[in-house]
Design a protein around this nucleic acid. Structure first.
Lengths: 199, 199
DNA sequence: GTGCTGAACTTGACAATGGAAAGTTGCCGG
DNA sequence: CCGGCAACTTTCCATTGTCAAGTTCAGCAC
């Protein structure tokens, strides 16, 4: 497992590439990702990356799959005790803490959903969200919890992307809301969804 | 202005490229956009495109600026008579009707916000949204309309991206909500934001 | 140990791409 | 008619993703 200066066999190429990939995506975006650049960064030949991930799409798909796994992990930490809003905040927090993963996970044109790992990972994460809204929406009280799911998921997803796009960082919006913590803002926004008479 | 088969001077290259660009982005995504491909599609040399838009980033920036203008147009059509939800639905409808524009408009890494046209166009569209939430949120009643803006904008933006990413098209979610019209679904979700006792 | 198999990696080649440079075409105002 | 200038072209180059054909090396049967 120790690979400080292994000359030929890198030892943990896959992990190193994925780690480096996260940095590059944050710096230059998914479009700025270069197999050759990643390879030299990690200290291997450019085709070595292809050996592990196949094509460029395969590389991004593996990265996105990892993202969905991280998301599931984050959602599981909160699901048992909390309410629906907590799940949404965890979703948003994941996006802000893993911007590279998040920005790739919902770009189907960059990914290959036939890749087994990706398909399964996304399915798992989505079903966690769905179950969360079922638990909250009080199955039986309402005819369907789908609008609740869509409202909450959509809101947190949208806030995440707008925040990552820098929309809240400048312009007249920024003036209207001083130095705002996005998480806190999202919590206030999310509370508008809760029945006002609750607790 | 007539340019059916002008041999040398194309006449409306700029417009033709932008139109073709929308199609290519829908088919292959922004990453699949090729200056050379666009050029041959439109019938010019690849550097002719560069002549009009500068770099590839310049091309996408011009396209995004056009998108923000189209969005402003769509928002203005509804602003005067309706309530806040109508504005949100118009936002969503724009995204679904112009998926190519929408998918590029919020990808800062692909754009150059120093481009004057883009900066101004986005500023205009954002201020329309902000004004819409002010009008609705009843300035004075609440201390700030910002959470309302963020809740509504975020929700519609998120639903748009999730829909365009195909999240609602497959998997267990799809089973939970048969053949659903996204606009209608968003309207039901958006209503969860309205104060239940309001007229 | 010896040899062998297969995974991890290499070098080398190729077509496609974005962009720069320098030249050509043709409209339009004087 | 002519000079200027925008629109466009051909040519060139560095960079990129992917393929094909080696090379290195770890582990395992014997």
């Amino acid at each position: 497992m120790n690979e400080s200066t292994t000359p030929y066999h890198h030892g943990s190429l896959r992990r190193s590439v994925l780690d480096r990939l996260a940095v590059v995506i944050v710096e230059r975006g998914a479009a700025g990702v270069t197999i050759r650049g990643l390879a030299t960064d990690v200290g291997v030949s450019h085709t070595a990356v292809g050996h592990h991930f196949g094509t460029r799409t395969g590389l991004l798909s593996a990265f996105a799959a990892e993202g969905f796994d991280l998301l599931s992990e984050a959602l599981l930490k909160v699901r048992d005790e909390g309410e629906f809003l907590d799940l949404g905040i965890a979703y948003l927090r994941f996006a802000l803490e893993h911007p590279a993963h998040f920005s790739v996970m919902f770009e189907p044109k960059l990914l290959d959903y036939d890749a087994h790992a990706l398909r399964e990972a996304s399915r798992r994460a989505f079903s966690l969200l769905q179950r969360g809204s079922d638990d909250f929406g009080g199955a039986g009280e309402r005819e369907s919890t789908v609008p609740i799911l869509v409202a909450g998921w959509g809101m947190m997803h949208g806030i995440a992307q707008l925040a990552l796009a820098g929309v809240f960082d400048e312009g007249t919006l920024r003036e209207a809301m001083g130095e705002v913590d996005v998480i806190d803002l999202a919590r206030r926004a999310g509370r508008l969804l809760e029945p006002p008479a609750a607790d």
